[in-house]
Simulated scan of single mutants.
Amino acid sequence: MRALTMAIAMAVVLTGCGGGREELAAKACESEVRNKLAGRTFELDLADLAAKAKPEQADVLYLSSQIVFDKGLTSEYRQTVECKVRLDPGKEPSVIFLQFNWSMDEIKKN
């Protein structure tokens, strides 16, 4: 019984550290976006990305959120970014899909 109580306590502590599957997947997506957009200024809300994570398969999460380019500048525009991350136990999360979706509304404003 004591071991079970200790295991539950450790699980609660680790969950509070933000190491959940959704957060790991969101960080992997952000890293891949940074690699693809090297030299560009953008803002991606990791909390929003993680909150919208949905399981697609047992080991794959689908994430989607808005990304803002050139925030605060006259050239500011927004897109949606979609990302799929494979989470294999004992391995680093790997991005298996990354896509930026253009919004026609932003184009029409200019």
Rank of each mutant, 00 (worst) to 15 (best):
V13H: 04
K108A: 15
V12Y: 06
I96R: 07
P89Y: 00
L24V: 12
F42T: 01
M6P: 01
V33T: 07
K27M: 10
T74H: 03
A53F: 00
V81S: 04
T5V: 15
S64L: 08
S65F: 00
A3K: 14
S94I: 07
G20W: 07
V13Y: 13
L98C: 06
L37E: 14
K54A: 15
E32Y: 06
E23A: 04
T80Q: 13
K52W: 01
E106K: 09
S94V: 09
K71W: 03
Q57H: 09
E82M: 09
N110Y: 10
M104R: 07
V13S: 12
T5S: 14
E82K: 09
K84D: 08
E32L: 07
M104A: 12
Y77A: 04
V95S: 00
S31T: 13
E22W: 01
A47T: 15
L14G: 07
C83K: 11
Q57E: 13
G90S: 01
P93M: 06
P93R: 00
F100A: 04
L87N: 00
L61D: 00
A3I: 06
D45G: 02
K84E: 06
I96P: 05
T74D: 15
M104F: 12
L46A: 03
G16P: 06
S103T: 12
A38D: 13
D48G: 04
V12N: 05
I67W: 02
Q57S: 13
E43F: 08
C83W: 09
S65Q: 00
V12L: 10
K52H: 08
S64D: 02
F100H: 12
E22N: 05
I8A: 12
K108T: 13
R86K: 13
R34P: 11
N35G: 12
K52I: 00
R2N: 14
F69W: 04
G90K: 03
K108L: 15
D48C: 04
D105G: 07
I107W: 04
P93S: 05
K36G: 06
T41L: 11
E76A: 02
G18E: 06
S75I: 08
I107E: 07
A26W: 05
L87D: 00
A47S: 15
D105T: 11
L44D: 02
L49F: 02
D70Q: 11
E32P: 02
D59Q: 09
M6V: 13
M104S: 12
G19I: 11
E92Q: 09
M6Y: 05
A25F: 01
R78T: 06
E23R: 06
M104N: 12
F100K: 10
T5Y: 10
F97W: 13
Q66C: 05
K52N: 05
N101E: 15
K91D: 11
S103H: 12
D59M: 06
A26V: 06
D105L: 08
F42N: 04
V12I: 08
E32F: 02
F97D: 05
L63T: 01
S103W: 11
P93C: 02
T74K: 13
V68H: 05
V13G: 04
C83F: 04
S64Q: 11
K109M: 12
